[in-house]
Design a protein around this nucleic acid. Structure first.
Length: 297
DNA sequence: CCACATGTTTCATC
DNA sequence: TGATGAAACATGTG
């Protein structure tokens, strides 16, 4: 944990009366990890004594019976796997996926609109799940192995397992476009639209390039780019953390570091060619038409 | 009203 | 059968 993050936490703790919101607009790996780090000291050791659905949206659990599974359990640890938040309980694991608009709150929101779940603790505190689009899901798993089997998540890009050899062997097996390959959580766990666009620009690779055709240099650039971009974003507590409220409203943000995402029409920071936005794999995709070509310049 | 935004699941098609 | 890609999901915004 970086020094700046410790400062952030300590300042947040001192001002716990200030509105607190754990969440982002588009949570990917760095954002989910940041949520976990803030959440961990607050909920570990808490015993779950109540599960409520303020808006009767019971589908927030994949199976309605799961709410009963977690009642009476103690939260022993909070970990991240891909974009999933894992609450390790004394009986099984409760996973939470924020999807696009999910937010976890440690204080009761001003309005219960869009709040699909409230988990109450024995110490009187509670955790609220606010999710405008209702895509977020909680799932209870008997074991970590069961979670892994269901989700089939790929390699963690901030772990030691993330090497150029690892990426190379994965790429060789895929005929998908590189953008789709990188978004597929079964290959690499935690990347989303923002960091995929950023990594491809960094490596000078066009998003439509067929994965298996990347040359060695491109693989090396892509592997280090993904690692460095995610690390730097994590150090800055993610990209969209302006929804993370502090007394001065100036929490660190990776947003200012973005090279292509959301910069349509603005000059490429390497060659000054205007960034264009195209559609790849049904996703808005930002590219520099000069630095990123299917056939390299 | 239509287009678009996000991540995953589901379904269709090669 | 397995891989790939597009639709669906829910809701708000421009």
């Amino acid at each position: 944990v970086s020094t700046s993050f410790k400062c952030l936490i300590s300042r947040y703790c001192k001002n716990s009366n200030i509105f607190l919101l754990l969440g982002t607009i588009m949570p990917e790996l760095p954002e989910v990890e940041t949520v976990c780090r803030v959440l961990r000291p607050k909920v570990v050791g808490c015993k779950i004594v109540g599960v409520d659905f303020p808006n009767n949206y019971t589908s927030v659990f994949k199976f309605s019976s799961e709410a009963e599974c977690i009642l009476g359990s103690l939260i022993q640890a909070v970990e991240r796997r891909g974009k999933h938040i894992l609450f390790h309980l004394d009986q099984g694991i409760l996973s939470c996926h924020l999807r696009m608009t999910g937010r976890l709150l440690l204080q009761e929101p001003l309005s219960l609109k869009h709040v699909s779940l409230k988990i109450s603790f024995e110490n009187g505190k509670a955790l609220w799940f606010q999710d405008i689009r209702k895509f977020g899901r909680f799932v209870w798993h008997a074991t970590l192995e069961a979670f892994e089997k269901v989700t089939q998540l790929g390699v963690e890009p901030l772990s030691k397992a993330w090497t150029k050899e690892c990426l190379e062997s994965l790429l060789k097996k895929s005929s998908a476009r590189i953008k789709g390959f990188l978004l597929d959580q079964k290959n690499i766990a935690g990347l989303g639209n923002i960091y995929v666009d950023e990594a491809l620009w960094f490596a000078g690779i066009h998003p439509l390039t067929v994965s298996s055709t990347l040359n060695h240099q491109q693989v090396v650039l892509l592997q280090t780019g993904i690692k460095d971009i995610l690390s730097e974003s994590l150090a800055r507590h993610g990209t969209t953390f302006l929804s993370f409220y502090f007394d001065d409203g100036k929490a660190g943000s990776y947003k200012e570091m973005l090279k292509v995402f959301g910069r349509t029409g603005q000059p490429c920071l390497r060659c000054e060619t205007p960034i264009i936005k195209i559609r790849v794999c049904q996703r808005g995709t930002h590219v520099c038409p000069c630095c990123q070509k299917v056939t390299p310049c």
